[in-house]
């Protein structure tokens, strides 16, 4: 995160924040043994399955691994398209 002061002065963001943000991602992958590629292909398969039942906007879908204490959770936010008559 860049502070307003850094933005004004054009300074690089403080390295402590970079360390923390990078570590967040590294730890998620270390703890779950789930690579970025594996996560992406899982997302795609999930979306394919869900789309067979409901109409969704793939662009609006958010599927992420989030840290909750020392546990990781797969958090999915999948908005359903409004007013779409369900196909049978």
């Amino acid at each position: 995160m860049t502070s307003w002061l850094d933005k004004l002065t054009g300074r690089k963001p403080a390295s402590a924040n970079q360390a923390k943000e990078r570590l967040k991602l590294v730890l998620i992958h270390d703890r779950t043994d789930l690579s970025e590629q594996a996560l992406n292909s899982m997302k795609n398969e999930l979306l394919a399955v869900i789309s067979r039942y409901i109409d969704i906007d793939p662009q609006a879908v958010r599927i992420n691994v989030a840290q909750d204490g020392r546990e990781q959770r797969l958090v999915a936010d999948i908005p359903i398209r409004p007013n779409t008559p369900r196909r049978r």
Binding site: A14, S15, A16, N17, A19, K20, L23, K24, L27
Partner: peptide
């Protein structure tokens, strides 16, 4: 801002 503080490390 060039070293994580205790809070940062604990959050991780």
């Amino acid at each position: 801002g060039d070293m994580m503080d205790a809070e940062d490390v604990l959050e991780l």
